[in-house]
């Protein structure tokens, strides 16, 4: 594998977006790009990552390779990332380490790190990314982040319901309750503020607040978030990158009684 990001912070943002959700991950590299999925220790949250060749300045993968890494270690190396530097990932044919090369031609500087790969036994789950859903919401990731931060302070359970009137996020704590209603809007001046809802039926689902607090860490990937809900199935919270691919979180709901 030889894959070069023209801006090293792209890869840093991707890794930082889920490094607190899961401890380790297998990156599956092929000529169609880098794909990964990992489940958190409590088996409630599934993270999926897709980095297609369009995200790279140059991308080459001669034979399919799996790269297992501890995310805490990789995140440490990526602290060196900045918008002035490119980052090339190299893995040899018999992979036992990942080489990260940061280059800042303007400053005549390069940095090289090696990360030992780990053998991770993990089941890949069959996730249909085109999964049909009863409700799809596209909204500002900034708005979503603020709503999650505000409401999760009040309760460890977070409810989402969508009706024709809009999307309602609500919490019911022991001493306080809160509710945020967001209605579809079109902001001609700033498209990222738009909120659109497409739905075939109403939904009402509850999730554990702590996972939502993890999910919003991915908001730096995109100023938009796509939410997909169906009754009694995991919700999908997806951040798509400008150049294709992105990071998705499938979150298992709490039981409805």
């Amino acid at each position: 594998l030889e894959a070069k990001f023209d801006d090293s912070t792209i890869f840093k943002k991707i890794i930082d977006s889920f490094k607190d959700s899961v401890t380790q991950i297998n990156f599956v590299c092929s000529e169609s790009g880098i794909e990964a999925q990992a489940i958190d220790d409590s088996r409630v949250l599934l993270v999926t990552v897709s980095i297609p060749p369009s995200c790279f300045e140059s991308y080459r993968c001669d034979r399919p390779t799996t790269i297992g890494v501890y995310l805490a270690s990789l995140a440490k190396l990526l602290k060196s990332a900045n918008t002035n530097s490119s980052l090339t990932l190299y893995v040899a044919d018999k992979p036992d380490e990942l080489l990260l090369l940061f280059e800042e031609p303007k400053n005549q500087k390069s940095m090289e790190y090696k990360l030992k790969l780990v053998d991770i036994t993990a089941d890949m789950l069959e996730v249909d990314s085109d999964m049909k859903s009863d409700v799809t919401v596209e909204m500002s990731s900034v708005e979503f982040t603020k709503t999650v931060r505000d409401l999760t302070q009040l309760s460890d359970s977070f409810t989402v319901s969508v009706t024709k009137d809009g999307i309602v996020f609500s919490v019911q704590g022991d001493t306080a309750q809160g509710k945020v209603l967001l209605q579809p809007r079109e902001d001609l001046a700033d498209e990222s503020n738009n909120l659109s809802i497409s739905m075939s039926k109403t939904i009402d689902l509850s999730f554990a607040s702590k996972y939502l607090l993890d999910i919003i860490k991915a908001a730096s990937i995109s100023n938009k978030i796509f939410l997909k809900f169906s009754d009694d199935t995991p919700a999908l919270f997806e951040f798509k990158m400008e150049k294709g691919g992105g990071v998705g979180f499938y979150l298992a709901p709490k039981y409805d009684d």
């Binding site: 489940i39 409590s42 088996r43 409630v44 949250l45 599934l46 089941d123 890949m124 789950l125 069959e126 996730v127 359970s157 509850s206 554990a208 199935t233 995991p234 499938y250 979150l251 298992a252 709901p253 709490k254 039981y255 409805d256 009684d257």
Partner: peptide, 14 residues
């Protein structure tokens, strides 16, 4: 206290 479902129960292994 609402019980929490697990993600594995919704997706099959590949």
């Amino acid at each position: 206290n609402i019980p929490q479902s697990e993600i594995d129960t919704f997706f099959s292994e590949n």
